[in-house]
Design a protein around this nucleic acid. Structure first.
Length: 180
DNA sequence: TCAGTGATTAGG
DNA sequence: CTAATCACTGAG
């Protein structure tokens, strides 16, 4: 909590994330990602594109390799942040979802103004220090409900050629309709 | 199309 | 210790 009543009233709470990732992910495009740098500097960005990663059986999901130091947070109850570095340069921002011991996460692939998972973390200054951050209580990052509703399109996930035909073909990428 | 870049992981 | 992998980006 930030201590600011108006902000804390709008914040999306932990329960939102403690559901199956295939319920949570389609509801994320259209939500507002809030990044607070200080009392005076708070930026808000509409989420436009996300992908679901679901369980140890999903060969595209990092947790399919088992419970390691990196994937540990995915096995926790929903509402935490999972961040990892890819290609030595880009931090990927994920929200953990679901019940404890069921590893799931949603990759945030794009927000308004910052299109692309590596670009948005660079612009919003999100790095490994956000690993494990609690979206329901963090002072520097959280979600808020928007005033409007949006149409969503679902497609196949991107960049998972290694995962095999079945998992490659799951339509677990969710994008705002007017975005594509 | 393809190089850059470094943490993470499995394996010796 | 080594080496392969990698949920990406930007230049050409």
């Amino acid at each position: 909590m930030t201590g600011n009543r108006e902000i804390d009233r709008k914040r999306i709470g932990a329960d939102f994330f403690v559901r199956d990732v295939l319920e949570v992910a389609p509801e994320l495009p259209g939500k507002i990602l809030v990044r607070r740098f200080s009392d005076r500097i708070v930026s808000r960005h509409l989420i436009k594109e996300v992908e679901a990663y679901r369980g140890v059986e999903d060969l595209a999901c990092h947790a399919s390799k088992g419970r390691t130091e990196r994937t540990e947070i995915m096995f926790h109850k929903g509402g935490k942040i999972y961040v990892y570095l890819i290609y030595g340069m880009y931090w990927m921002l994920n929200f953990v979802t679901g019940e404890e011991n069921i590893p799931q996460a949603v990759l945030i692939r794009g927000v308004e103004k910052f299109d692309g998972p590596g670009k948005l973390t660079r612009e919003l200054k999100i790095d490994n220090s956000f690993y494990g951050e609690d979206l329901a209580s963090s002072k520097r990052i959280w979600l808020e409900d928007p005033d409007e509703t949006y149409d969503i399109i679902r497609t196949r996930r991107i960049g998972i050629e290694y995962a095999g035909e079945y998992w490659k073909n799951r339509e677990w990428r969710f994008v705002l309709k007017d975005n594509c």
